[in-house]
Design a protein around this nucleic acid. Structure first.
Length: 350
DNA sequence: AAGACGGGGTA
DNA sequence: TACCCAGTCTT
């Protein structure tokens, strides 16, 4: 009877979590009521913003715009001014647009209606729907992803949409349908204060007994992320042939690994160069790296032409260079070369 | 799928 | 000083 056992476990989980929440819940300004407008404003403010940072702005904002009608009637610049210091100003612009929609057509009464408002994604729609409307929607923010990954001891990369869906389904299964708003806030508060990214305080955790990661001792390693793009530390040289003048194409140089431990470590840079006599004028600065077995090339236009033979004169074949995925910078550089009448040809030296 | 968005907090 | 944080929207 695995289903029955599962249901029983989920029920116990809810009891433990909510008992902990009831005993430890913080008094926050937006918890004084479950008023839709106040909950909504707080959830938008709390996107990418810490509770402590949001509180003073929240209080000021509500004083300035005490009800949705006031917000809807305000000018955008007034709203932006009240938002100043919070960052991500598109949140304020979306909120303002959404306020006009709510003022005109009424408070949303479902997850879908909430989700349709500008600035309300899956998280915000679920949070407001559960806290203000009492609807059984699981709100999955970064905290909940961390808690869910540890409860299930699931080391799949947490930024993949499919994996996030799995964690959301777990949260949905655990959700207390009679107190969805409290349950969601309890999960998030657990993640923020106990189930910490580093150094989780398992001894203080109300649901330790339900945690598969804790049982396996893997809690510190979760949630897992996509494997870091791997830069192969191999002396690969890339030959680019660039058509420079009406005369034809010219082979140009290449690149060596950039040094240092900085952001550019692992990229490849051209050696210092001299200007060739034939007036080759516009050669890019090239950086490339092997990322997950794919060649990536970035090309910067450089005011000074550069050409230099490789010191050792050796070339290595780069696989499928003509199919190299160019990043945004490289595409811009190539487009710029083409606009200037120079057709870049990519070729493989050997 | 990947990057922009903006502050503040932290190594 | 530079990196990190993590929802939503855009491309």
């Amino acid at each position: 009877m695995p289903e029955y056992a599962e249901r029983f476990r989920a029920e116990r989980f809810r009891e433990c979590l909510l008992a902990w929440y009831d005993a430890n819940r913080r008094d926050l300004p937006w918890r004084e009521s479950s008023d839709f407008y106040r909950v909504w404003i707080s959830e938008v403010m709390l996107q990418q913003t810490r509770v402590e940072a949001a509180i003073p702005h929240y209080l000021r904002f509500l004083e300035r715009f005490p009800a949705v009608g006031v917000l809807a009637a305000a000018s955008e610049s007034d709203v932006l001014a009240a938002w100043s210091g919070l960052g991500y100003y598109s949140r304020a612009r979306n909120l303002h647009r959404a306020a006009r929609i709510v003022a005109a057509s009424g408070t949303p009464d479902s997850f879908d209606a909430m989700r349709a408002l500008p600035g309300a994604g899956p998280y915000t729609a679920a949070a407001v729907a559960s806290i203000a409307l009492g609807l059984p929607c699981a709100a999955v923010d970064g905290n909940v992803v961390r808690v869910a990954s540890r409860l299930s001891n699931d080391a799949s990369p947490s930024e993949s949409p499919a994996v996030r869906r799995r964690f959301a389904e777990l949260a949905e299964r655990l959700l207390d349908r009679s107190r969805p708003g409290d349950f969601n806030q309890a999960m998030m508060e657990l993640g923020a204060t106990v189930c910490l990214p580093a150094g989780p305080r398992c001894a203080a955790c109300p649901v330790e007994a339900f945690c598969a990661a804790r049982a396996a001792g893997t809690q510190e390693t979760l949630p897992a992320r996509k494997p870091r793009a791997e830069v192969r530390q191999v002396a690969l040289n890339l030959l680019l042939r660039v058509r420079i003048a009406p005369g034809g194409s010219r082979e140009v140089f290449l690149v060596r690994r950039g040094g240092g431990e900085s952001r550019l470590a692992g990229f490849w840079e051209p050696p210092s160069v001299e200007i060739p006599p034939d007036g080759a004028r516009r050669i890019g600065v090239f950086k490339h790296q092997i990322v997950n077995d794919r060649f990536q090339v970035a090309v910067w236009l450089h005011p000074d032409p550069l050409v230099e033979p490789l010191p050792d004169g050796r070339w290595f074949a780069a696989p499928e260079l003509s199919a190299v995925p160019l990043g945004g910078i490289a595409r811009k550089a190539v487009a710029s070369l083409e606009k200037a009448g120079d057709t870049p040809l990519f070729d493989i030296g050997q």
